[in-house]
Amino acid sequence: MSQQNTTMLFPTHFILLGIPGLEHLQLYLALIFTVVYVTSVFGNLMLLFIIKIDRSLHEPMYYFLCMLSSIDLALSNSTTPKMLGILWVNSQEIYSEACLTQMFFLHSFAIMESALLLAMAFDRYVAICNPLRYTSILTKWLITQIGVLAISRAAALMMPLPLLIKRLPFCSDNVIHHSYCEHMAVVKLVCADTTFNNIYGIVVALFIVGLDLIFIICSYIFILRAVFRLASREAKLKALGTCASHVCAILAFYIPVVLSSVVHRFGKNVPIHIHILLANVYLMLPPLINPIVYGVRTKQIRHRVKSIFSVHFVCSTHVCSDVRKTHSTQHAT
């Protein structure tokens, strides 16, 4: 009887607390996260639009960048709208199926982003170490296959998570001490042995982050060897300059991931709001940083953005001028 009172089947809904311990800063955090979210969405949409309309950007590097921006948009929209609902209007309830769906997609998109960063490292490796065969190696067919493989790998690895959780009994408490349905935060509510779930989560994280990161590092070792063999200093700087945006994207993604994982595994005395803030940074920083970095560092994209805004400014100026002239003519008449 006591067992029935303390456990239940899979609940119909969960309660997301947001960021416990920082309730007094909730509105400030809501404002900051809203600005970050809007900037991320606008930046990535702008990047996709520019690459689509500019035929000179229809190259392997920019196809991968389109994939990365699409994943960043999906990653932002999988968690941030609900989190903003919690912070702005205390909309804390989330249906259990929606919670599992959010869990599947946010972890899947994170895995896809890791795969795209690896693909972009391969792109830079071919461009610098084997430039004469760049277009023959990185064909549209290969790029498509890489994209399909990234999606398939993420789906295959993440599909078991919601299925494993749904079969377990839950405690009577359905309150998730987090701002979104992160895997380990949901598993903590289970009233059963979750060793397999924990091991599966750790193995997937180590397999994805560890393996992808090792291959990325190997790619850059070969890239640096090729760069230092170049004769002139200008050629070396130019070659390294083509990798700068990608390196920034790697750091923006992997540093929060590693830091959040280390704090989660070993920071037993770290306040819970620090854990949650790091988890939010891990999801919100790459979609914010990537379009800014590539927009600033890539000359073609930078020039296209300037031309779009300059044309808009000129057109607006002409419209205002025409309106003033019309108004003056009507007034004189």
Rank of each mutant, 00 (worst) to 15 (best):
F215V: 01
E23N: 13
Y95P: 06
L211M: 15
L230F: 08
I71W: 04
L161P: 13
A185L: 09
H327K: 04
L27Y: 05
Q4M: 14
Y220P: 02
G210V: 09
Y180E: 13
S232D: 04
I143D: 10
Y95F: 05
F14D: 02
C99K: 12
V36N: 04
C171L: 08
P60N: 03
R304M: 15
H58T: 00
F196Y: 08
T80E: 02
M184H: 13
S108A: 08
G267H: 02
L117W: 10
Y220I: 03
Q26N: 09
V323K: 02
C129I: 06
Y180L: 07
S136M: 03
V209P: 06
V319S: 00
L57D: 00
M103T: 01
A156I: 15
V323L: 07
I255F: 08
L288D: 00
V175G: 01
L118K: 01
R265N: 14
V247Q: 04
L9I: 00
S179P: 14
R153Y: 12
L16D: 09
S2E: 06
V190G: 07
D212A: 02
R304V: 12
H177C: 05
T7H: 11
K82W: 12
L240T: 07
V89M: 03
G267R: 02
I128E: 03
T139P: 09
L29A: 12
Y62W: 03
S232I: 06
V187C: 12
Y134P: 10
V41M: 14
A119C: 12
I272V: 15
V204S: 11
V89P: 00
I146K: 04
A239Y: 06
H13L: 11
S172R: 12
I274E: 04
V319R: 00
L100E: 13
W141P: 00
I217M: 05
K238H: 01
S172M: 11
A121K: 09
L277N: 07
I151V: 13
L138Q: 08
M46Y: 07
Q330I: 06
A192H: 09
V319M: 00
Q26H: 11
T80H: 01
S261E: 12
I151N: 08
E113C: 12
N77A: 07
L206V: 10
S260N: 11
A252T: 10
V305H: 15
S219F: 14
Y200R: 04
L189S: 02
T298W: 04
C66M: 14
G21L: 02
L27S: 08
L57N: 00
Q300C: 07
I32W: 11
Y95D: 08
V311A: 14
L163Y: 13
Y63S: 08
M158W: 14
F122H: 15
R225E: 02
L288N: 00
V209W: 06
L230K: 12
S56M: 13
G43R: 14
I301Q: 05
